[in-house]
Nucleic acid binder design. Structure first.
Lengths: 138, 138
DNA sequence: GAACGATATGTTATGTTATTACGCTTGCGG
DNA sequence: CCGCAAGCGTAATAACATAACATATCGTTC
């Protein structure tokens, strides 16, 4: 049975390779990291990776972390989320936690309404230490 | 009388030049934009600008916009804000609006507490169209 | 005031991230 | 078959950022 974690079948070869690499990775990868991992599969130029990433990000299958200049696979495949997603990035282990918060989103909407600002995209990235890393440091 | 908008007097020459450039600018500037504007004042290398920016950002006199790889002067000199600052960036005119929202900040704190995540820094950047640009487009 | 450390500076070179420009290929609707 | 849209491959280059090293400036302590 098909379920929500299936990888879409209409990806091109390059898109599939890039998404696969992201999915297999523990943490965020830069475009060049991805390229290096895919040399064996015939990829040679940054643009091949960037083009695939563009599409994947467009479709919500991957996210760009602006504060890292890096990318991650979307944490839950079924989401197709339209709204705001926040990322908590651990400086210790590099793990990225992805979450949505309706309260923040709605608060943002309120601010935008008051200001007459039309929101097109929001990036929210929290840097810090995850529970595991804090425990290890103790 | 000294008041809250005075520029701190203990800046070094380079820091003062960089902050002055940012303050005089309508919108965000990249480090290289700043460098170009300061060639006449003797600056030659990117590092001179980056070093000044580091200090200014540390002190809260300037902010880095991660999604733009660019910098702005802090909108209100007196703030010395410790907490979360959000930026609304207009794709039309490049204007950046800076605001703080305690509800969002506190909501974030709640999430972090639940997750055992220690927040060190948060970046929140909203891309869209400001009221002026929407009006012009109409 | 000499010795010291901390901070800032200047310069060169290099590393990393992202895009432009161009031409070819493939799949698909008319 | 034609034409168009989307994808692909390649080379070159632009844009953003740091490493490494040498000097200089300034306040503190002796």
């Amino acid at each position: 049975m098909a379920h929500s974690h299936d990888i879409p079948t209409d990806l091109t070869r390059n898109q599939e390779l890039v998404l696969g690499t992201l999915t297999a990775s523990m943490g965020p990868l830069s475009a060049y990291d991805i390229l290096d991992k895919l040399r064996g599969d015939g990829l040679r130029a940054p643009l091949q990776v960037y083009r695939a990433l563009d599409k994947l990000v467009d479709r919500g299958l991957a996210h760009r972390l602006e504060s890292l200049n890096a990318f991650v696979a979307c944490a839950d495949m079924h989401c197709h989320r339209k709204g705001l997603i926040a990322f908590a990035i651990c400086e210790g282990c590099g793990k990225v936690d992805e979450f949505a918060d309706e309260v923040i989103e709605e608060r943002l909407g309120t601010w935008a309404r008051n200001d007459g600002f039309k929101v097109e995209r929001t990036t929210m990235e929290i840097r810090g230490r995850c529970a595991d890393c804090l425990k290890k440091a103790a």
